[in-house]
Design a binder for these strands. Structure first.
Ligand SMILES: [Zn+2]
Length: 278
DNA sequence: GGCATTTGACCATA
DNA sequence: TATGGTCAAATGCC
């Protein structure tokens, strides 16, 4: 028992350290000090995206270890074809990107507050699907022109499972309390001191981080998405989830040509530019 | 009043 | 023309 806790703690610490490293590197890239990113250079593009995925994955894994009742699978959505494709016509301008390629999706046994402000704008019964699909857009769509969207759909009952598909990235900022995530630049001094130096500074001290999947708070849904946010999972299940989520790893060797169609990078860089211009 | 959700109508696309 | 995505009026919540 004691050992198990110890092992888990080790895993948690490793994941946190890794996430911290990713975040630091990413911060280095995004830092106000320089426009290091060459927006035309696909290599640095991939690098930035990989770092982001690394961060998310590390925090995800941490969550799995800490609370194995949550099973979250990340799926990096490359153009696997399962999804709606961009109309193959000559792009007819860069404006109307109706249904574009999702940036990523997760499957969770419960609805998760990803820390963003979403506004529901539709709900649709999907043919051949048992459960309706729910459409959300960022609350700041109009005041800040944020194009982030997501769709949530229950995909099975027992075990309860929801799929959340994200489209685009947030270009909005939380004006009121700009929740800037500032990584403590202090070097991880003493490894024997088990306190991991992953500190997030925050202008206001109420809510530490608004990071997807760190919060376990259940919200939304009243009637349509049946509540019953209750589930159980055996220990093996969580272990499996942990392994499977680790399989992907960082693949910065992803073929470059694949990314050509990856318009979503535009959105990422739009967000970065906004971040840097402030 | 100001914002969020609900829900049928409307629209774009294949 | 069927399906999925979005709009917007009605409604609800604080
Ligand atoms: Zn946003």
């Amino acid at each position: 028992m004691e050992n198990l806790l110890f092992d888990q703690r080790k895993e948690v610490e490793d994941e946190l350290s890794r996430g911290c490293e990713y975040a630091k590197q990413l911060q280095k890239i995004l830092n106000e000090t320089g426009e290091i990113i060459d927006y035309e250079d696909p290599v640095s593009s991939i690098f930035a995206e990989d770092l982001m995925m690394g961060i998310l994955r590390s925090f995800n894994n941490t969550l799995l270890v800490l609370n194995h009742t949550h099973i979250i699978q990340f799926k990096e959505v490359s153009e696997e074809g399962d999804f709606l494709k961009i109309p193959n016509k000559e792009l007819d301008g860069r404006k109307r990107r109706r249904s574009s390629i999702p940036t990523w999706e997760t499957k969770t046994p419960s609805l998760i507050d990803d820390g963003q402000a979403w506004r529901k704008y539709g709900q649709k019964v999907i043919r051949n699907a048992k459960y309706a699909r729910h459409y959300y857009r960022c609350t700041n769509k109009f005041d800040q022109g944020c194009k982030a969207m997501k769709q949530v759909q229950q995909i099975q009952e027992n075990p309860l499972l929801y799929r959340t598909t994200y489209y685009g990235n947030h270009t909005c900022r939380n004006l009121h309390d700009a929740e800037t995530i500032i990584l403590d630049s202090v070097t991880p001094s003493d490894p024997s001191d088990s306190s991991i130096l992953l500190s997030f500074a925050n202008t206001n001290s109420t809510n530490p981080i608004k990071n997807p999947f760190l919060s376990t708070k259940l919200q939304e849904q009243k009637e349509s998405l049946p509540g019953e946010a209750y589930f159980q999972s055996g220990p093996d299940l969580s272990t499996h989830a942990f392994e499977s989520s680790g399989t992907a790893g960082l693949s910065s060797s992803a073929s470059l040509d694949q990314l050509d169609d990856h318009e979503d990078l535009d959105d990422i860089f739009a967000a970065i530019q906004i971040l840097m211009s402030e």
